[in-house]
Computed example of a mutant assay.
Amino acid sequence: MKNKLNLIGLGLILPVLLITIWEAAARFGLIESYLLPAPSTVVVSVVEMAQDGSLWTHVSITLYRVGAGFLIGTAAALLIGAAVGYFKQAERLLDPILQAFRSIPSLAWVPLFLLWMGIGEPSKVTLIAVGVFFPVYLNIVSGIQGVDRKLIEVGKVYNFNSLQLVRRIILPASLPSFLVGIRSGLGLGWMFVVAAELLGASEGLGYLLVLGQNTSSPELIIASIILFAGLGKGTDSLLKGIESRSLRWQDNLQNAK
Rank of each mutant, 00 (worst) to 15 (best):
K156V: 07
R248S: 13
P172H: 06
G131I: 07
R168H: 15
L238R: 07
L231F: 11
V210P: 05
P122G: 07
S216R: 15
I242V: 12
I225L: 14
T126V: 12
E219Q: 12
R149S: 14
L179S: 01
V194H: 07
G181L: 03
I226S: 03
G131S: 05
N159A: 15
F178A: 13
E153G: 11
G155K: 00
E203K: 15
L205C: 02
I140S: 05
I225N: 02
I170F: 01
N161H: 02
N161F: 00
F133E: 05
T215W: 08
L238F: 14
G232I: 00
L220K: 13
I128F: 01
G155I: 06
T235F: 09
G187A: 13
P176H: 02
A223N: 12
G241P: 10
F134T: 04
I221A: 07
E197P: 04
I119L: 10
G204N: 01
R183C: 10
Y158F: 12
I119Y: 04
A201R: 00
I152N: 08
V147S: 07
L205H: 05
G185R: 12
A229N: 00
S224F: 04
L209Q: 07
V180S: 15
V166T: 12
L227K: 02
F134C: 06
I128R: 01
G241M: 10
A201Y: 08
V147E: 08
V180F: 08
V130K: 00
V194F: 10
L198Q: 14
F228I: 00
L199D: 05
L138Y: 11
N139D: 02
V154R: 13
V132N: 01
I221Y: 06
I144Q: 09
G241I: 02
I221R: 11
R149G: 12
R248W: 09
S237D: 14
L188H: 11
T235Q: 09
V141N: 03
G143A: 05
G234N: 01
G204R: 01
T215P: 01
L239Y: 04
W190S: 08
I140W: 01
L188N: 14
R183T: 07
G155Q: 08
V193T: 00
Q145K: 11
S123V: 03
L186F: 06
F133L: 04
L138I: 13
L165Y: 07
G212N: 04
I152C: 06
L205W: 03
A196N: 06
L151A: 13
I221C: 06
L179V: 02
L115W: 05
S237A: 15
G118W: 08
L209I: 08
L209V: 06
S246G: 10
S202Q: 11
V136Y: 08
Y137Q: 02
G206S: 03
I222W: 05
A223K: 05
V210R: 12
E243I: 04
L238H: 03
G230K: 07
